[in-house]
Write a protein that binds this DNA or RNA. Structure first.
Lengths: 338, 338
DNA sequence: CTGAAAGCGCTTACAG
DNA sequence: CTGAAAGCGCTTACAG
């Protein structure tokens, strides 16, 4: 019963059953050409010892493991939603999922973590991998699907229609009458950040509103990064009447900064975000934002990876999912302009 | 640059550097006794080929991998919270985390999944594992910490003080004047389910309220399982004036059933849950519940596992974390008794 | 300081 | 129908 002892190996089973490990392997893997009585013996030995084959040894020897990998940096609510989608897509597919997360968030491995983890997993452990928001291009010997890729990445990917979403929400602000609209952009290297910023510029251009470089600030998608930027924007004498932040986390932080500065939202300032995280509905006032179905990002990525691994993927290798404008209380016509 | 080709192995590096794989291994692992010039050659070959050591091969050969495992059945918000705690506890610890989730939720592997996954990982891949809500006892050659163990499990574990929490919330209902309090209990085999039910009984006993077996129904912690049970309870001629459900998911479902039956909450019926999931604050009315810090469950489990693996754990191997009563609008004195 | 060789736990041709 | 042997990519005594 191997309780606290060394793990039971195939040799242990072979010895007890009085056969070779080759035969045990055949029984374990249901290969043809083993006599019924031998199967019986081996089965009983397996039962008796509580044997389970080692994933590591098996994967080292075999080319196919039926395990898919997912590499991530952290576990925010975003990640959790992605995972739900991935798991649902993999349900009953015969593929198990292994997730690799490194713990040295601020340590020596911070740079290029995704490539390192990918290489460690994809040697032989997994048949393919999903990588979430990598900071650069990723390469691997097995199929890879990237969720929210780095800008310019050529890897198969799944992403929301960030450009359309940003255009829509900035268009909404323009429609309310705003003309001075600040933008707190996201992490420079990410495709998503770039598209959202581009959507902002395009919406302004289409409305004939001249672009003011002084109204754009660059954050990192991290909520904390937005505080000083929002403060700087709101301290300007020609303060914007609205701010579009490229993520809800940053938008919520902006809401907080506005409150600290004694500004009323949406009376003195309209604020809009991107993502539609659960906290946005709870904020006071509720945050106007763009919904991207993070669940579907995960679902579609897993579906694509599954197909790629099986060699039966016929669809496009770049999937762009629709976004949806969600209007709540944080945006209104400019009220008390200076 | 191994783009889409076979992964680069240590032999490739050795060949290019003109040394043996033994020497490459020494350089990769920073072992002493390699000449500076050789180190230089090997380093440059590694760089050139983009070599990363295979986690699988390394772990098969070595006893220690500095990777901790986590085995789970699904990815609910509960799991996500646990993961956040685990990751924070592991931050900068030198341990990476690998999570194994099986996709056959309703397939052939459903039974004993935790033991199977544990065995597959703990052969050599991980130095120790956390297992979330296993359905039975788990055993492994490496340290294991269980979050919300099966009833009667002897494994090291971390769990909330479910008994105290249930006693408190049922005490709250009794204090409001309720005497007929229904109970929708959780999955039979789990320690948490048992303790919550036991807390219910104890609170009644202490208040001198006789226990009515007809008022107790057994669900599975799954929200869906609660609907027919709630309906049956509320269809009784001697309907309870309050229902305590052993999880928020089941309590929210009960809220919904009550609404369908035209019952006002809390006017006609008080409802209380357990867990304090985010949705409970958003419900209308807000759900009275017991807060258990799922984040801390994960944090403490990881902390314990880390210590166990390093052989330096001095604390208790069973950690029970405090719970906290959260009163919201779903409970009130019995209003319109029949 | 360096390499040949054994071996971690498996699987898979190859013989018999 | 079954086993001996090679080998997956590494690490580690053991020689030299």
């Amino acid at each position: 019963m191997a309780r606290g002892g060394a793990p039971v190996t195939m040799s242990d089973v072979a010895r007890l059953a009085g056969v070779s490990t080759a035969t045990v392997s055949r029984v374990v893997n249901g290969r043809y050409g083993v006599s019924v009585s031998t199967i019986e013996q081996v089965r009983s030995a397996i039962e008796q010892l509580g044997y389970e084959s080692s994933l590591v040894a098996t994967s080292l020897r075999r080319s196919r493991t039926n395990v898919l990998g997912l590499v991530t940096h952290s576990f925010q609510s975003y990640t959790a939603e992605v995972l739900k989608g991935v798991m649902d897509a993999l349900s009953q597919s015969g593929f198990d999922l292994i997730i690799y997360a490194n713990s040295d968030l601020y340590g020596t491995y911070s740079d290029g973590w995704e490539q390192r983890h990918l290489a460690r997993l994809s040697g032989t452990l997994t048949d393919g991998c999903i990588v979430i928001t990598p900071s650069g291009e990723v390469r691997s010997g097995t199929p890879v699907v990237v969720i929210d890729p780095a800008r310019g990445s050529a890897a198969p990917s799944v992403t929301a229609d960030n450009f359309a979403g940003a255009t829509a929400v900035v268009g909404h602000l323009l429609g309310l009458g705003h003309r001075r609209i600040g933008c707190i952009a996201g992490r420079a290297g990410l495709e998503a950040a770039w598209s959202r910023e581009e959507g902002y510029r395009t919406a302004l251009a289409e409305a004939g509103v001249p672009f003011d470089p002084g109204l754009i600030a660059r954050g990192s998608f991290n909520p904390e990064s937005a505080a000083p930027l929002a403060r700087a924007l709101l301290d300007r004498p020609d303060r914007p009447t609205a701010i579009f932040a490229a993520s809800d986390g940053m938008a919520l932080k902006t809401l907080q900064v506005a409150k600290e500065l004694g500004l009323d939202v949406p009376g003195d300032l309209s604020v809009a975000g991107f993502d539609n995280i659960p906290e946005s509905a709870l904020a006071e006032p509720g945050l106007t934002t763009v919904d991207q179905s993070v669940y579907r990002l995960g679902y579609e990525a897993a579906r694509m990876l599954k197909g790629l691994v099986r060699g039966e993927w016929e669809g496009p290798v770049r999937t762009v999912l629709p976004t949806r404008l969600v209007v709540r209380g944080s945006t209104a016509p400019p009220g008390s302009p200076w």
